[in-house]
């Protein structure tokens, strides 16, 4: 796939922002493409890891926020593990994700941001993940109630998923961590 790059001041800032957030130096990439060769979702996406890096090197900006790799990535870390220059590409993906969330980029296939938000909401409330609630809310939120419904009775019967919410966590500490994180986000902007 080709991406059209319009180079201007804003895109230079974009590269800088991504590199800062991910704590990487993308100029050390010499396009050996080992990351793309080992990527387990390379056949499903338009722009594999090495091309996302090339795009950033050449000054691509917010157009990368809608690239399909961002929310298709499995966080398997194979790219990072095999990179001869130790570029932490999964951190680049995380940086692009958080910028996409801040800028309100288009909702990706599967709506992982919704799932992550619901997952973290249960962590905020209970101190630990309440799997059943996060999954149920996600299924409601995406309107995909039918998928997996057949599995739940058996999983519940076998005790493969808990019905009751988790207990025993230090919830006050969780509140503090989440509120600090929200505060810091406010000052970063």
């Amino acid at each position: 796939m080709t991406i059209r790059i319009t180079k201007h001041k804003a895109t230079e800032d974009f590269l800088k922002l991504v590199q800062e957030k991910a704590d990487v130096n993308l100029s050390s990439c010499y396009q050996c493409k080992k990351c793309s060769m080992g990527c387990p979702v390379a056949d499903l996406i338009k722009l594999p890891p090495s091309e996302v890096i090339r795009g950033l090197q050449l000054g691509a900006g917010t157009e990368l926020l809608n690239t399909d790799l961002i929310w298709t990535c499995l966080s398997c870390e194979t790219c990072y593990s095999r990179c001869p220059n130790q570029i932490n590409f999964p951190a680049v993906i995380d940086a692009l994700k958080s910028i996409a969330l801040e800028k309100g980029a288009a909702k990706p296939a599967g709506d992982a941001p919704l799932f992550n938000r619901l997952f973290l909401n249960t962590v905020k409330s209970y101190g630990r993940v309440y799997e059943l609630l996060a999954i149920a809310m996600y299924k409601l939120g995406t309107g995909n109630l039918k998928q997996d419904m057949g599995k739940f009775p058996m999983m519940l019967k076998k005790g493969k998923i808990a019905i009751l919410p988790p207990s025993g966590a230090n919830k006050d500490k969780m509140k503090r961590i989440f509120s600090k994180s929200a505060q810091n986000k406010g000052t970063e902007k």
Binding site: S75, A112, P113, N116, G127, R128, V129, A169, K173, M174
Partner: peptide, 21 residues
């Protein structure tokens, strides 16, 4: 009183939050 490590949801949202959790 252990709490959630943040799993994959936290680092996809905010890497600093993930490390703190």
């Amino acid at each position: 009183g252990w709490t959630c490590c943040g799993a994959s949801a936290a680092h996809q949202t905010d890497r600093k939050l993930a490390v703190s959790l």
